[in-house]
């Protein structure tokens, strides 16, 4: 479970940075900063603009990594 948590975490972080870069490029620095503050905003902005930004695989990996992280954390608690 710990390995799953580490892998999910790494994927989560990489996808977050990936989408954050897209958010900065598309919406400008203020929205990018908002995306850092509120990563949940970055996540849903990514899903809403998934076809426009062509980031379907990234968003799928991010979603799976979040669910996997939650499952692993629940199992470890």
């Amino acid at each position: 479970m710990e390995i799953l948590l580490i892998v999910a975490g790494l994927a989560n972080l990489v996808c977050f940075i990936w989408v954050l870069v897209k958010l900065f490029a598309d919406k400008g620095p203020l929205h990018g900063i908002l995306g850092i503050v509120c990563s949940i905003y970055t996540f849903f902005w990514g899903w809403v603009n998934v076809s426009e930004q062509n980031i379907t695989p990234v968003m799928l990996v991010w979603t799976i990594s979040i669910v996997a992280g939650m499952v692993a954390q629940t199992a470890l608690v």
Binding site: G9, L13, V37, I40, M70
Partner: peptide, 18 residues
């Protein structure tokens, strides 16, 4: 229950402004 995991806090070890 474990909710949304902040990537900055959880994987960089530093709390984000939110």
């Amino acid at each position: 229950k474990p909710g949304w995991i902040c990537p900055t806090r959880e994987y960089l070890g530093c709390p984000c402004p939110g």
